[in-house]
Design a protein around this nucleic acid. Structure first.
Lengths: 216, 216
DNA sequence: GTTAGCATGTAAGGAGTTACATGATTTT
DNA sequence: AAAATCATGTAACTCCTTACATGCTAAC
C-alpha cells in the first residue's frame, strides 16, 4: 500500500478512463475540458497520479496484441511506444464505483462535488440525490454563517468587504436554487416509471457513436 | 530568512492586524468572518503563520505597559498573559503595502483576489482598477476556454456534464458582470473630484436601503 | 463539578504546484 | 532546419489540513 491518493485527480482520471482508454497527454486535456470552470491540472500532477494508480493496479498499460478491432483507424496506432495508453482495470472500476458511491463530506465539498457531479451519469440515482441534498445543506450552513457574521459586524465593515460578502452570498444563494431545481428534477425522474425500486444499476443510454476526437 | 510564507493567510493576518491588534483566537474568527464564503482556516494554519510572521519581525507581541487606553472595557483585560496580543510592526505595514500593491496573477487568481478585494480599502485606487481588470480578463479567458471545450465535445457529453458546464459558465459570466459594475464605479469615483489624485480612502456611497433578504 | 468555550500550540502529512529536463513528431 | 506541439516524466517545494495535546476560565 503506497501513498493513498484520494483527491479529485484520482476520481477524475478513473472516470475518464472508464469512458475510453487514453494516454496521459490527452487525458490532461480532457480533464481540463471536463472540469474547465473550477480546476486545472498540470502534467506535474497527472503523471505522478497515473504512476501510482498503475502501482495500485487500478489502471494498466494497454498493450494491443490483437490485430484489428481498432475503434479509430484515423490515427495510426504507433508501432513503437512513444505513447502509453492506459485503461481501467477491473479493480479500477470497482474503486471508481466506491468513490462514486460516497455521499459524505468528500462528495459535497467544493472540489469533490464538482467532479462527482460530472460523473453523475455513472452514479446510482439514490446517491445522486443524497449528494445533491448534502451539498445544499452544506451551502445553507455556509449562508447562515456568513449572514450571522455580517449581522454581527455590521457597522464596522467598509464598503468593499460588504460588497464582497453581498456578492458571495448571492453566489451561494444562486447555487442553492440550482440545486433545488436539480433535486426536483431527480425526484421527478426517479418516481417516474411507477416502479417502487429506482433500479439498481445506472442505465446506459450512451449511444455507441464513434469517438472521433476533434483535437484543437 | 526563514520560509517564505506568501499565501492568502499572511495577507489576511497582516490586513486584519492593520485594523487593530488582536490575539490568535480572535484573529481566526475575524478571519473566517472576513473570508466567510470562500475559505476557512483552522488554528493549525494560523498559529504557525503567526509564529513565522513574528520571526520575520512583521508582527510583534504587544506588551501594554501603559495603564489605561483600553478600547473595550467590557472585558477585563487579563493581568496575567494567557492571551498573546499581536500588533503590526512598521515592517509589517510595509510588507502589507507591498502585497496590496501587487497587481499580477497572484492578485487575480481565485484565492488571492478574494482577500485583496476584502482589503481594497487599504489599496491604491490605480491598483484596485488593475486588479479588477486583470481578474476580468482572466475570467474571460476562462469563459473562452470552456466555451471552446463545450463546442468541441458537444455531441458526446452526457446531460450532467453539460449542465455542470452550463452552470459554471453562468457563474463566471455573472462575476464578469459584477466586475464590470465595480470597474465602472471605480472609474467614476476616480475621476469624480476633478483632482488628479483620487484621494486616499474609499468613500461609502452604498445607498442605505435596509437589506432584508427575501428567502424563498 | 462538569460541560462548553476560550486560548495556544506541535507533528505529520496530503494534494497538488512549479520549475525543470528530455525526446519524438509534425508543421512551416 | 527551425519552431511548435505532442508526449513523458522528476525533484523540490508550498501552503495548508488533520489530528493531537494542553491548560485556563466561564456557565449551568
Amino acid at each position: 500500500m503506497g501513498g493513498h491518493r484520494s483527491g479529485v485527480l484520482e476520481l477524475a482520471v478513473l472516470g475518464l478512463l472508464h469512458e475510453t482508454p487514453m494516454h496521459g497527454y490527452e487525458l490532461r486535456k480532457r480533464l481540463n475540458a471536463l472540469l474547465g470552470a473550477f480546476r486545472a491540472f498540470g502534467y506535474g500532477s497527472l503523471y505522478p497520479c497515473l504512476k501510482e494508480l498503475l502501482a495500485q493496479g487500478l489502471i494498466a498499460e494497454e498493450s494491443p496484441p490483437g490485430p484489428a478491432a481498432g475503434t479509430a483507424p484515423a490515427k495510426p496506432l504507433a508501432g513503437r511506444r512513444s505513447k502509453i495508453v492506459y485503461r481501467l482495470t477491473a479493480e479500477g472500476k470497482e474503486r471508481l464505483q466506491d468513490l462514486l458511491s460516497e455521499s459524505g463530506p468528500a462528495a459535497w465539498e467544493d472540489d469533490g462535488f464538482g467532479v462527482r457531479f460530472a460523473f453523475f451519469g455513472l452514479t446510482r440515482a439514490d446517491i445522486r440525490l443524497r449528494i445533491l441534498e448534502g451539498r445544499r445543506t452544506r451551502l445553507e450552513e455556509r449562508l447562515d454563517g456568513v449572514r450571522a457574521a455580517m449581522a454581527r459586524t455590521r457597522e464596522r465593515l467598509d464598503s468593499y468587504t460588504l460588497e464582497l460578502h453581498r456578492h458571495g452570498l448571492e453566489s451561494v444563494e444562486r447555487e442553492v436554487r440550482w440545486l433545488n431545481e436539480l433535486i426536483a428534477s431527480e425526484r421527478e425522474s426517479g418516481q417516474d416509471p411507477a416502479g417502487p425500486r429506482p433500479a439498481g444499476g445506472p442505465q446506459h443510454q450512451h449511444d455507441p457513436q464513434q469517438d472521433h476526437i476533434t483535437e484543437e
